[in-house]
């Protein structure tokens, strides 16, 4: 049986509080900024996607994806 490595986002000292809402949101933005700067094919951005996926609730991500598609996403992309 192969070992599955389980990993969450690393501790980020910008977000020291128990509430990690802002951490999740910032990682989401960092991913999209990274993609915008380096292009889809770059594999440097994938880590940010892993971080936000482990930090953010699924519904939030769905909502933000919709908002980005409609151009109503409020964050600084």
């Amino acid at each position: 049986m192969a070992e599955i490595e389980l990993k969450t986002a690393p501790a980020d000292f910008r977000f020291p509080t128990t509430n990690q809402t802002r951490h999740c949101f910032t990682r989401y933005i960092e991913f999209h900024r990274c993609v915008a700067a380096r292009g889809e094919e770059s594999n440097e951005c994938e880590k940010f996607a892993k971080y936000y996926r482990s930090l953010c609730p699924g519904e939030w991500i769905e909502k933000w994806e919709e908002q980005r598609a409609e151009g109503t996403f409020p964050g600084p992309l």
């Binding site: 809402t21 802002r22 949101f25 910032t26 996403f73 409020p74 964050g75 600084p76």
Partner: peptide, 11 residues
Amino acid sequence: TVEIGGIWPPK
């Protein structure tokens, strides 16, 4: 808050 994108004034 995150709901207004974490920026002021909101977008």
